[in-house]
Amino acid sequence: MSFLEVTNIGISFGGLRAVDDFCLHIEKGELYGLIGPNGAGKTTVFNLLTGVYKPDRGTIVLDGENLTGKSPIEINQHGMARTFQNIRLFHNLSVLDNVKVGLHNQIPYSALEGVLRLPRYRKAEREMDEKAEELLEVFDLQGEKDYLSSNLPYGKQRKLEIARALATNPKLLLLDEPAAGMNPNETEELMETIQLVRKRFDMTILLIEHDMKLVSGICEELTVLNFGSILAQGKTSQVLNNPDVITAYLGE
């Protein structure tokens, strides 16, 4: 059995079958790409995986645990973390606190211990600060840790979102169009960051992307989605040379 095993999931909105019979097998440590034309249902697949939508049918199993129908909160606690296509940071919190929210379930103490400033609060907060700063350093954000997250430039906001997702200690990281709105230089840098994250945290990554340079550069396997169903699946080089994929997505 694969690390992530998605079998025949689907969802309809009214009469529209947004995603139909979607299957996905990802091995541990793999970097997997999900591509497809606009409106193909890629983000819907992410929303199904992370529990934002409940699938009408099919099952989702991560590392032997059945996550089908669980809430986003439970799914995150079971080891799936994500970023969003349109950045969703906690914009009124500092950069450091954004990451510390990610550590919420990793280093717990009760609200009462926090109010009374008991020793456990101090110890946990110190531990959180260290861990958060360590993560920020990976993304080269340590210099901006006291900035309000909404004051960061766009590329750094994307990085911060990945840092926050990693803070929840996931087994599988889902990145929804991480290179959207980035210039070629930033995309290049992002590719390096993703590779670094993968190596350093021994992370399995599933990403949605439109930037073909990024996809062909770092993804090992691909699934192509079109009108809610799978068009092609397999090794990146094979999939990108598949004539169906070229006509549907890449163009002649």
């Binding site: 986003p72 909160i73 995150n76 929210v101 926090g114 929840t168």
Partner: peptide, 28 residues
């Protein structure tokens, strides 16, 4: 003290972005 603690951060995270807070494992 509540605001400046783990719970307070979670509460403000919910205020700033409920969907992201849920995806980060915060119980609304």
């Amino acid at each position: 003290n509540l605001i400046d603690s783990r719970s307070g951060r979670a509460i403000m995270a919910i205020r700033d972005n409920r969907i992201a807070a849920e995806a980060t494992g915060i119980s609304i």
